[in-house]
Design a protein around this nucleic acid. Structure first.
Lengths: 158, 158
DNA sequence: GTCGCTGCAAAGTCTTTGCAGAGAG
DNA sequence: CTCTCTGCAAAGACTTTGCAGCGAC
């Protein structure tokens, strides 16, 4: 058996907890809790994909057409969430970034260069090693990310 | 002593070799060898930095003002070089990508979130592990990249 | 009520593309 | 000579910003 653990779509934090954290964050910074902000958080939570701002906006428009949420608000909220480390962004190949909730367990990425899909994995040995490297080089590490590029199983079979 | 090897500014390929490879590449694809393309390759080779297209363009304008190289040509040549895997690009945080010659020895990156500087390192254990992970998950790996984000030594001392 | 938030549209970045003349092979 | 390249400027893609009215607290 492999010691590589995969955590596809693992939800390690309950939504209520997440929402509570978000509200605290807002309160601490004298910001207001709005329905748009909640919907953005919820949509990120319910998505198992890494979302581009535009894709996130579309999901929200589809589900809550009456809110008529503007793309600018999506960008503004993502920036807010990223600044507060509640979401992390991934940018590669194409233009733009994709976002995911940081509350899910940390993981690295396998990116298919053919279909653009992103799978996730965790490897403890690599995690340990990264910390050791930063330490030895006198670098104060705050975060890290790793991507493996290639062709995913599905695309290999096509 | 640490087994982590750093390879700052290591040039593992001579320029003549690189130029030769570039010419072959062009010939194979019925493309033409132009002074602009040479200057772009040379400037990338002589730079120890990861260059954004605009920065590369400025370097070229400064060194060869008479060529009046257009930014569009820089973008076109970088795309060509990246497609042929002669350069790799790195995109993170801010907008845009930074490029470096792929001919240098493979390495991963330590990115300072304060000053934007990029340092490099190689760790064999991580390299091995990456191959193993891709293999076990049925992923046909073509490339990978790893970034550690944090505050570099210089910025810590400020 | 106050002050931050929102949608809209306009403005900014960064990158790509169309075109006519220049230049490599 | 032919066919690709190039610089320019215009167009595109993505993101940010200014503003006037709206809404959370």
């Amino acid at each position: 058996m492999s010691d590589i653990t995969t955590d596809f779509n693992d939800k390690t934090v309950e939504y209520d907890q997440l929402l509570h954290d978000f509200k605290s964050l807002l309160k601490r910074n004298n910001l207001k809790f709005t329905i748009q902000r909640e919907v953005i958080l919820e949509t990120l939570y319910n998505s198992d994909e890494h979302l581009a701002p535009e894709a996130l906006h579309h999901l929200i428009q589809d589900k809550y057409p009456d809110l008529n949420t503007g793309i600018a608000t999506v960008y503004r909220t993502l920036a807010l969430l990223e600044d507060s480390s509640m979401v992390t962004s991934l940018s590669f190949g194409a233009q733009g970034k994709k976002y995911e909730l940081g509350a899910k367990e940390h993981h690295d990425h396998l990116i298919c260069t053919k279909c653009g899909s992103i799978a996730e994995f965790v490897d403890e040995k690599i995690e340990e090693r990264q910390h050791k490297i930063a330490e030895e080089l006198g670098f104060e590490m705050s975060d890290h990310s790793m991507q493996i590029y290639g062709i995913c199983k599905d695309c290999q079979n096509k």
